[in-house]
């Protein structure tokens, strides 16, 4: 972190905080990561990785929920279809037999 841009980096980050723009603040850290001292670089990398991993895990879990529900729903529909067809056959047969 050079002397000349330390204050500039810090000021820009505060600006994004004051604007409540977390997304832009994270993006700023990722963009300028190499301009920070090594120990801060590591904190930034770890935090952003952790955050990305959580987002992906959350989306995947929600998609899996939709998929399982969808599969169950289609199976239930097919069971109902088959039940209808069976009942129709029985009904026809009874009709033919005059019952």
């Amino acid at each position: 972190m050079t002397t000349s841009n330390t204050t500039a980096l810090y000021n820009k980050l505060i600006e994004l905080f004051e604007a409540s723009d977390e997304k832009a603040a994270k993006s700023f850290l990722a963009q300028h990561v190499k301009e920070f001292p090594e120990d801060i670089q590591k904190k930034i990398v770890f935090a952003l990785f952790e955050d990305a991993l959580e987002s992906k895990a959350d989306t995947d879990a929600r998609v899996a929920e939709i998929q399982q529900e969808g599969l169950d729903a289609i199976k239930s529909i097919e069971d109902k279809e088959n039940t209808f067809k069976d009942k129709q056959k029985i009904s026809k047969l009874r009709s033919l037999l005059g019952l």
Partner: peptide, 17 residues
């Protein structure tokens, strides 16, 4: 790399570090 496919911050980190 997989995370970077959907996360622009990780994509930038990949480019930078």
């Amino acid at each position: 790399i997989e995370l970077a496919e959907r996360n622009p911050d990780i994509k930038k980190l990949l480019e930078n570090v």
